[in-house]
Design a protein around this nucleic acid. Structure first.
Lengths: 184, 184
DNA sequence: CAAATTAAGTCAACATTACTGACATATATT
DNA sequence: AATATATGTCAGTAATGTTGACTTAATTTG
């Protein structure tokens, strides 16, 4: 019966700290850095009544024009229903257009419109500016080291996707999984 | 009247790439790394029917036992209402306890219970493990460089808070703003 | 001391983003 | 012809966030 104590007795007053052998600093840096990192896009998109979800869809469609819905779902790790809502709006508002797949006409491939590309670039520029400004104040090797760290923080099975976005390995689930004759 | 073109004409087929002078790689690394970073806590807390919001409240209360509601709102940058909902549950479930402030009895200072501390530590350990595993594979200077980068990514006005969490500058809006006679 | 301010809680209403599960349609594949 | 796949859609629900107005209690200020 010692389970239920008086409130003032069971309370802990000393802070959790690095003494516990845990890198709280890094944990919190990730939290705060990411929070501020997405704040800019959030603000910009709010003027269009769009949210973070719209941004992500717009971004990856611009990074992989012709991406299929399935591949997009795989990147975003959200459900079809969640995607459908924001995608519908983006298409209605002419930021994204659909075209049936040439080889597989069940697919509805997603492409940015000119308007969509402009918006995506505007937002990315804003985020890139924050990154560049942060790096400016630091030694040049910081960028490489940070990239390596963030990359290692990603689940192994997600890493190929990330790489493919930057090195044009388009046949890697993301783009044209049918045209995989070139690799593998 | 050249604004409204046929769909197939106005579509953009080439990917946005680093050629546009923007570091998309870093942007996406932050996105994917953060997504996987919060996935572990999300999973653990889901078993308690808690979400990310609960985690954040629990975390900072453990990092700053005795924190006031106002200071917590300032860290989390959410509204009183959003906080109230999750805080109420955490108190009901005996993860967090309230005590009136000694000098200012309007305040309801928040403390972790033993149960709350245990949960917070468990989650932090999990996140720290991911960080340490990532760093293990990389040169030793990576940690310092990454910390510096993430720190520089935070809005300047938020940086003192981050530092205070790690260096016990408790009198910095976060903890005991009344008892500021000791420093300053 | 009375008035104003502050810390916190509460209520109502609402928006966004996410989820699940079931079902429909068209197209490919076997 | 039967099955599988890609996508869309519907209904219902949950978590998290917002705003604005109001209350209570305690502190500060004129």
């Amino acid at each position: 019966m010692t389970e239920k104590k008086v409130d003032s007795d069971e309370v802990i007053t000393h802070p959790m700290s690095e003494d516990d052998g845990i890198s709280f600093e890094m944990i919190e840096l990730l939290f705060f850095a990411y929070r501020d990192f997405v704040a800019d896009p959030d603000t910009m998109l709010a003027t269009l009544s769009y949210g973070r979800a719209h941004h992500r869809v717009l971004h990856f469609v611009n990074r992989r024009p012709g991406i299929t819905v399935a591949a997009l779902l795989d990147i975003l790790k959200i459900t079809k229903q969640s995607l459908a809502r924001v995608l519908k709006q983006l298409i209605e508002d002419d930021y994204i257009a659909q075209q049936p797949g040439e080889t597989d006409r069940r697919q509805r491939r997603l492409f940015p419109t000119v308007k969509g590309r402009e918006l995506a670039l505007e937002i990315s520029k804003c985020q890139a500016r924050r990154i560049e400004e942060a790096l400016q104040t630091l030694p040049p090797e910081t960028k490489k080291a940070s990239k390596a760290f963030l990359y290692a923080m990603i689940e192994p099975q997600g890493r190929p996707t990330v790489r493919s976005l930057n090195h044009g390995l388009e046949a890697l689930t993301v783009f044209e999984p049918d045209d995989s004759s070139r690799r593998k």
